[in-house]
Design a binder for these strands. Sequence first.
DNA 1: GTCTATAATTTGATAGAC
DNA 2: GTCTATCAAATTATAGAC
Lengths: 177, 177
Amino acid sequence: MQKAEDTAEAILAAAEWRARRAGYRGFSFRDLAGDVGVKSASVHYHFPNKGDLAARLVQRYRRRTLEALGSPQDCSARQAVERLAALFVEANETHDLMCLCCLLGAESDALPRNVVAEVSGYFAELCGWLESVFGPDHEGLSAQTVVAALEGALVIARTRRDPEVLRRCAREIAAGF
Amino acid sequence: MQKAEDTAEAILAAAEWRARRAGYRGFSFRDLAGDVGVKSASVHYHFPNKGDLAARLVQRYRRRTLEALGSPQDCSARQAVERLAALFVEANETHDLMCLCCLLGAESDALPRNVVAEVSGYFAELCGWLESVFGPDHEGLSAQTVVAALEGALVIARTRRDPEVLRRCAREIAAGF
DNA sequence: GTCTATAATTTGATAGAC
DNA sequence: GTCTATCAAATTATAGAC
C-alpha cells in the first residue's frame, strides 16, 4: 500500500548498497525484494529488467554525487581536490562502500550498454567538475588522473582494509595543488 | 587424455580471461569447461571449489606480474614507474583486459577470504617492488598512490573506451619522478 | 582424468488474480 | 501495486562408472 515512489526509491537504495559491495551480479531481484519487504514480482513491476534498474541506479548516484560536490565557485584547485577526496573517504570510512561507478566500470565488459553509458558519464562529470575549477591553463595532474588515483586508492584501501591508503593518496594528490 | 598440468593450466587461463572482464561471478565452471573442451565435473576435479580456483588464479597472476616487472636493479625511480605503467597499458591496449586484482579488489566484500588475501598480497607486492627502487628517503608520490592511479586510470580508460586516459595518467605520474 | 547424471539452489522474468 | 505461482535456465557441487 506504499506509494510507488517510496517503494521504487527503497529498491534503489537497497540495490545501491548491494551493488557497491558485490557489483552488478552481486544483487538479485529476490535480494532486493527481501530488503524492501515485498516480493520479487513487485520489484519487476518498478524495474522491468535488471539493466534498467542498474541504469537508474547510476543516474541516481550521479545526481547525488554532484549535489554533494556542490558549486565549484569560489573554490581553489586544492580545495576542489580536497572536497572530492572527502567524498571518497566518507564512502570508505563512514559507509564502508565502494564507489558504485568504479565497481561497475571495472565490470563494464559484462554490463548492458546503457549501464556502461551512465557509468562513463559519471567519470566525465567528475572530471568536468574538477576542470571547471582548474581552468584552461592548468598545470600539474589532470582531473582524470586525480579521479583515477582516488578510485584506485579506494579499491586498494578496501581490499587491504586500511583506510590510511586512501587518506595518504588524497593528501599526496592535494599537496600538488 | 591430457596431462593434469596442461588441463589445469588451460582452465586457469580461461578463468583469468573471463574474470578480468566480468569478475568473480562472471565465470562459471561450465564456462571454463566449455572453453577448455571438457565437462564441468572435470574442472571440479582440478579445482574442488570456486574459491580455490580464484585463489590459484591470483597466485598465478601475481607470479607472472612480478616476472614481467623483473629485477628493479639499475633502475631509476622514473624508469620503474614507466615499466609498471607499461604493463597496465599492455593489459589495456594489447589484451583489452582489466587488472585481475583491481576487479577482484573492487568486489572484495563478496569474495572468499583466501581470495581477498591473495589480492591484498598483490597490491603489497607491487608497492614493495616500487619502494625497493624509490628507497627509504623518497619524495613525491608514494608507491601506493602510483599503483592506485594506474589501477583507477585503467578502470576509467576501459569504461570510456579511451586508451589515452591511461596513457596520460602514466605520463603525468612518471613526469613527477 | 574424464565422463554421465543429478542434486539443490538461485537466477531473471512472466501470467494472472486481487 | 502487490501478490501467488511458475518457468526455463544457470549455478556450485557431488556420486559413481569407465
